[in-house]
Every structure is written in structure tokens, then in C-alpha cells.
Design a protein around this nucleic acid. Sequence first.
RNA 1: GGGUCGCUAGCUCAAUUGGCAGAGCAUCUGACUCUUAAUCAGGCGGCUCCGGGUUCGAGUCCCGGGCGACCCA
Length: 508
Amino acid sequence: MTDESQSDRAPDDSASLESNSLTRERLAKYRKVMEDGGFPYSFSRTDTTADLKDRFPDLEPGASTGEIVTVAGRLMNTREMGKLIFAVVLDGWGSIQLFVDKRTLGGDTFDAFRDLDGGDWIGATGEVIVTERGELSVKIFEFTLLQKSLRPLPDKWHGLKDVEQRSRRRYLDLLANEDSRRVALTRAKIVSELRTQFESRGYIEVETPVLVGEATGATARPFKTRHNALDMEMQLRIATELFLKRLVIGGIERVFEIGRIFRNEGIDSTHNPEFTMLESYEAFADFQDVMVLVEEVVAACAIVATGGSEITYDGRQIDLAGPYRRATMLELTQEAVGEDMSYDTPVADLRVLARRHGIDPENHWGSGKLIEALFDRLVEETLWEPTFVTEHPIETSPLARAHREKPHVTERFELIIAGDEYANAFSELNDPFDQRARFEAQAAAKAAGDEEAHPIDEDYIRALEYGLPPTGGLGIGVDRLVMLLTDKHHIREVILFPTMRPEPKEES
RNA sequence: GGGUCGCUAGCUCAAUUGGCAGAGCAUCUGACUCUUAAUCAGGCGGCUCCGGGUUCGAGUCCCGGGCGACCCA
């Protein structure tokens, strides 16, 4: 189907640039530069905009410094005042005003500057001054057009609002919306802080395979692909867990990976098919030790992201300084259900209870899965303050070690904040016989209709037979942590290029 | 998968009961030597997402489709 308005909105080749009144003039100027020798291959600047603001923090209005600098960036906004032009140049660190005076530049150069368009990349040299109105500026005496922008930038005041366009054309979003730049930079700071936190504790960062024969370590549908030379089906990983634990078996006692994970499932406000997970494993630690680690790491990330451990999310305060509340899944669920129930309650009774709360239980669900479903339904979204929900059922935790005292449950926790899950951790199951039994239970569930059951990984069991020491493991959803710390409520706001349906082909 | 809302100028959005399709910004022309979303005057710019229907007349109502957002499962 032809969508004419689409091709008007986003002309796709030089023919449509020619046909659009907003781009025709820019194209003519571009061609003129190309005829006259083309655009520069490089450019030397003396200062970024941030450098200038650091170097000249509080000059008086009207000040002249005698300091000659060269800046470069994208021309964002010009305000013409007769024989004066005020222009804003945006670079990777911020923006600075150019003071363009016809008397300083001369008529020809001044006219050439007037000929620039919003979005053009320029370099400019001049004196650092402060205008009479107090704005730090560069009073330029020469400039260079570094590259032409053939298309107009988004609205200078409203920016680019359309959510789809902001994701598809992230470069425009970053140009037009300062908040998008802030989120991108904050994400980088958080990831960097995560590395710092783990490295400073002696953890070694590794990279494990993305491309695997069978995706393991979690219960999720994988992406499938094919390796031609090996003539074999392959999958993209759904977790890094089992590889990292092999490394602990190999003697790397503290190990972590920040890696892209792929799950072939739906897209919504908290799920993107590819996302970033941090997993860490520490020999000789248990889930209690990992809780302390998580408290310290999350608080440290909050401080680099927001300046403090007290953050605002969705209009409400959250204190991320530990220690966090600890509560078992069973007690929280009992409280929400308001009646006596436990893992010993007959499955038939739990099924009735689940149905009463709007859950449609599948046939193969046991008491553990039913209680977890009730927790997910009734409790999770009510937990606002950071809470370690502990002691998940064995049935739903095939890689977690059974609780040292309690039956039915594991030494596991999830960190819930503002109703969402941010971390998942456990004392790692290191008994190869128990692990085999868990895998077999998963296989049975699969045979009973559970499409998300964990596959048996024989090679991993063999590794366990060499001995995994007592180990505390952790997974943190990095994208969600960034959402929390930047006060964003959709995962696409913290992923620069979220997965999207391809754009319809344009007619030219 | 279900429900709700949306799709109008390059961008952000209006358009009364079905009655000439508009504004701001951008762009173009002109004025202006201290602007900060500059201001002022003027101009250009539309297959109203697509297809059908009702009607003297449809951006608006009806049917079908596409795309998107939000909520629910």
C-alpha cells in the first residue's frame, strides 16, 4: 500500500529532498560546497562547551577575556538581531552561545553565516566573552561549515514527542530532547558504577557465549538461528548463569558478566527481546551475603545516577539506602490471601484459591507454582519500598539450593522495588544429584505441557560433578535498574535502539 | 489475544451540531547591535493514515483495513 504522507514526512533520497520545499535549499547549498571542494575531513577544536563553562565559571556581564578558542558542534538555534546574530552550538557535552557581529566578521562572512541552516555542523573560532545579558559566548571571527544537515531538525520548543519516532530516530530524540541525553549518559554512569562495584570487590569480568547449542540458565523461549559451516541449529542465550558457574568450578571464585540476553517473548513496558543483565557469582557466599552486596551496589548506583540514595520514582519517594526489608514469599502471600495456607496445603485447595483470585492454573502446577502465582498476582505490585522477597519454592527454582532448614523452598531472593523485580539471587545448587533431579522434574513439567521448563544440561551436571563450592549468585536487570534511577516507566526509554517492527518501505 | 484512545502542514497541536482546514514553531522575504522559545510585519506550505459507504456536503457519522499509545490477560 502506498502511503504518500509518509514519504512527504520522511523523504528518502535526493529526488525527494529536491521535491520538498524545506530541504531543496539545503540540498542546493550542499551541492555548492561539494562543487567548491567538499567538506573537511577533520577539525581541531581547542575546547568543548563543557571546558569553556569550567574555565570561565563566573565572569561579569560584558566581560572580554582576550582568550581565543575554537569550538565545534551542531548549529541549533539562531536569533538574528540586524547586524548581530546569537547562535547556539550543541556539542557532545552541552551548548554554548556564539556571538556573531557583522563588524567583526565582515559582510561576506556574516552573510555566509546567515546562510547556515539549523542542524549544520560548524566549527568556529573567536574570543570568549560574556554578553551584556550575562551569557558566556564565543565572539567569532571565523567559522567553517563541517557538514550540512539536509533535513530540518525537530521543533526547537516541543522537541520530538512521538514515542515511535523518538525510538526509531533516536539521533533526533537525542538532539531535540535534553532528557533523552540525560538518560543515555546516566545509563553509562550506572553501568560503569556496576563494573566499579564488582571489580573493587575482586570480581573478574568475563564474556561467555551468546551463540549456544541450547539456551539454558533460565526458563524462557530462545531465539533460534543457524550456523552454516557447522551445519547446526543454534540459539541465542537466555542467561549467562551456567557458563559463569562453570567458571567458578574452574577456580575463578568471583566472576561477573554484564551481557546482552535474548528472550523470544512479548514486548511491553518492562520487556525488550534483547536486554542487559548483570550476573555475578561468588564462591563461599550464600544468599544472605548476596543481599548485603545488592544493598551496597544498588545504593552506589543510585548515588552516581541521582546524587543520593533517596530517589523519586513515579512521583513517590524511595529510599535505596539499605538494609532493605526481608520477608518470605509464603508469609507475604499468606498475609495477602488472609487465610491459612502453606506448601502443605493440598494442591486441589490451592487451585481453588488461585481461581478465586483470578488465576487460571495449568494442570501441571504444584503447590509451589500455585503459591508463587498468588504472590505474583496479589503481592508483588504492592511492595513499594525495597524488599527482599525470600524462599521461593523449589518447584520454580531449578538452579537454587534447597533451604538448609525449611522444606519445599530454596535459599533464594528477589529484590522488589516499586512493584517490580530488580534482582534475583540464590545460594547456588551445587549438588550434582539434586541438580539432575531438578532437571528431571523440569523435563517432567515440560512433558506435562510446560513450554517454559528448563532443559536438561548434561554437560553442566558433569561440571558440577567436579565440585562447585558453596556459591552465592546474582542477576540484576540493568535496564530496569536504569529505569528506576532515571524515573522512566518504559524500557524503550532506557534502550537507545529498542526492538521495533520494521518501518514500512517508503515510495520514492 | 481483549478493551480504550489516537493518526490533520516539516514539528507540536486546534477545528462547535456534519457546513470555506486553522494556530504556534520551522522555512522564505523585510526591519532590528545584547538575544535566550528574541520581537515585529508579510509570504509559502494540506490526498486530514488507507479503502468503501451515508449525505447537497465528511477531518467529523457508519463499515473494513493499517500503524501507534495506554490498560488488561
